[in-house]
Deep mutational scan, measured.
Amino acid sequence: VKKMAKAIMADPNKADEVYKKWADKGYTLTQMSNFLKSKTAGKYDRVYNGYVIHLD
């Protein structure tokens, strides 16, 4: 998940494709939050927020 999150950060155009894969795998927002937690607070906030919007 972190590898794909980094791919989104490097190229935001990949976001919809990645979010669809995550949704197809049934990842919940709680799971995504836990996967994307980082020592650098807020590092993956943009990715998480994008997934929230995708699921909505």
Rank of each mutant, 00 (worst) to 15 (best):
I53E: 14
K43N: 06
K37R: 11
Y27E: 01
A7C: 11
D45I: 06
D11E: 08
K3N: 09
Q31N: 05
K25F: 14
E17F: 10
V1I: 14
Q31T: 05
K2T: 05
V18P: 00
D16R: 10
K39F: 09
V18S: 03
K6M: 13
T40D: 11
M4W: 09
A10L: 13
L36G: 02
Y48S: 00
D11H: 08
Y27V: 03
M32K: 00
N34C: 13
K3T: 11
D16N: 12
A23R: 09
W22H: 00
M32Q: 01
A10P: 02
F35P: 02
T28F: 02
Y51I: 04
M32G: 03
K3G: 08
Q31R: 04
V47T: 01
K43D: 06
M9K: 05
T30S: 12
V1E: 03
K37N: 10
A41K: 14
N49C: 15
P12W: 15
A10H: 11
T30E: 15
N13Q: 11
N34A: 13
K3S: 11
L36F: 05
R46K: 15
A10R: 15
P12I: 08
Y51A: 02
A23Y: 10
S38Y: 07
L36E: 04
A41Y: 09
A23I: 06
D16W: 11
D45E: 09
K43P: 05
P12G: 07
G50R: 01
K14M: 14
D56R: 15
V1H: 04
F35L: 13
A41T: 12
K2L: 11
V18E: 02
D24N: 10
G42V: 03
A23P: 00
R46N: 14
D56Q: 15
E17G: 10
A41H: 11
L29H: 06
K43L: 11
A5K: 01
T30N: 12
M32N: 02
N34G: 12
D16M: 10
A7M: 15
F35D: 04
M9W: 05
A41P: 15
K14V: 13
M9I: 12
T28Q: 03
D11F: 07
I8Y: 00
A23K: 09
Y44R: 02
G50E: 06
L55V: 04
L55C: 06
Y48K: 03
K6F: 06
A5T: 02
I8A: 07
K14I: 15
G26L: 05
G50A: 04
Y48H: 03
V18W: 04
A7Q: 12
S38M: 05
T30W: 11
A10W: 09
R46Q: 15
A41C: 12
A5R: 01
M4V: 04
R46E: 15
M9L: 15
K20D: 05
I53T: 13
G42Y: 06
V47P: 01
V18Y: 09
M9E: 04
P12D: 06
A7G: 05
K21Y: 15
K3D: 12
S33E: 13
N49S: 09
Q31F: 07
W22G: 00
N13D: 12
Y27W: 08
K39T: 14
K25C: 15
L36I: 02
K37H: 11
S33I: 11
R46T: 15
K43R: 08
Y19Q: 00
K6C: 12
D45L: 08
Y51H: 02
N13G: 12
Y51T: 03
N13T: 15
Q31H: 08
K39W: 08
G26E: 06
Y44F: 10
K37M: 09
N13A: 13
D16S: 13
A7R: 10
K39Q: 11
V1N: 02
I8C: 07
K43T: 07
L36N: 01
D11L: 03
G26T: 01
Q31A: 08
N34H: 14
M9R: 07
L29V: 11
R46C: 14
G42F: 06
S33P: 02
P12E: 08
K39M: 10
K6V: 07
G26M: 04
D16Q: 14
N34K: 13
K2M: 07
Y48E: 04
Y27L: 09
V18A: 06
K2R: 12
K25M: 15
A7W: 08
D16V: 10
M4T: 05
T28I: 05
M32S: 00
N13L: 12
K21T: 14
K3I: 08
A15H: 05
K21F: 15
E17T: 08
D16H: 14
L29T: 09
D45P: 00
E17W: 11
M4Q: 14
K3R: 13
S33R: 15
D24L: 12
D56A: 15
Y51P: 03
V1M: 05
K20N: 08
L29C: 05
D24R: 08
A7V: 11
D11S: 07
T30A: 13
K2F: 00
V18M: 09
T28K: 02
I53H: 13
A7L: 14
G26R: 05
K21H: 15
M32L: 14
R46V: 14
T28D: 08
H54P: 01
D11Y: 08
I8G: 02
T30D: 14
G50P: 00
K20R: 12
K6Y: 05
S33M: 12
A41N: 11
A10D: 13
K20A: 11
L55H: 04
S38Q: 04
L55P: 00
G50T: 01
K37A: 11
M9H: 05
Y51V: 02
D24V: 07
Y27F: 10
E17P: 05
Y48R: 00
D16F: 14
L55E: 01
A23M: 09
G42D: 07
M4F: 05
D45C: 09
G26F: 06
K2A: 05
V1P: 06
L36W: 02
L29G: 05
H54L: 05
P12A: 10
N49M: 14
Y44A: 01
K14H: 07
Y19F: 09
L29D: 04
T30P: 08
